[in-house]
Write a protein that binds this DNA or RNA. Sequence first.
DNA 1: CGGAAATATAACCAATGGGTAATATATAGA
DNA 2: TCTATATATTACCCATTGGTTATATTTCCG
Lengths: 103, 103
Amino acid sequence: MSDNLFEVLAEPKRRTILDALRVKERTVGELVALTSLSQPGVSKHLRILREAGLVSAAKHGQKHLYRLHAQPLTDVDRWLQPYRPLWPDKLDALERYLDEEES
Amino acid sequence: MSDNLFEVLAEPKRRTILDALRVKERTVGELVALTSLSQPGVSKHLRILREAGLVSAAKHGQKHLYRLHAQPLTDVDRWLQPYRPLWPDKLDALERYLDEEES
DNA sequence: CGGAAATATAACCAATGGGTAATATATAGA
DNA sequence: TCTATATATTACCCATTGGTTATATTTCCG
């Protein structure tokens, strides 16, 4: 399966689902409405997200309430870490600007 | 093509290439050695990375020196942003521990 | 100039993935 | 109990992708 977290996140609809769950818990039906996917389509994505540990479901009667678990995203954050000092952020731009002023 | 940065990063060998370029610039031949891919395989990945703005090449004679550009990764960082307050980090764990001490 | 070296592109293939319709399963409610 | 609702799973299809081999292109060097 998708042993790779980046692959899980690569699928746009899955990020849409995560973004939706970030706000609050949702049932599958609600996610279907939010993603304009078929119900099986959403269930398929939810399975992959579950297996990645990014969401979990709680059965409330016939409804399944899905909840976000952000923890695995720390892996992405950690991968990003060594790149952070390399990208030019606004502060760096300001520094360069000031450096040029001096000369 | 791959209009999606996450998709570009989803491929493990591409991350290997980025990680290698993070250390220093490399020629295609060097990357072939580092990735245990065929030369065309590496060139294909490099093209995708180029189109994503993550690397650029400088011709030095017959050799092409590839260099990393971390800037597009800020997009990933920005996507991650709203999730950060949600994942339980070590500090939070410490806080919880201390809270329990009090009671 | 002619061959070797470095890289890119083209052509092709097998595997994967995301989508859907159809079906199974479980629960709510009359 | 029977039907409707909510979700999951299965089966299938088409497009994409990552890999390779073969070929083109450029540059170096004898």
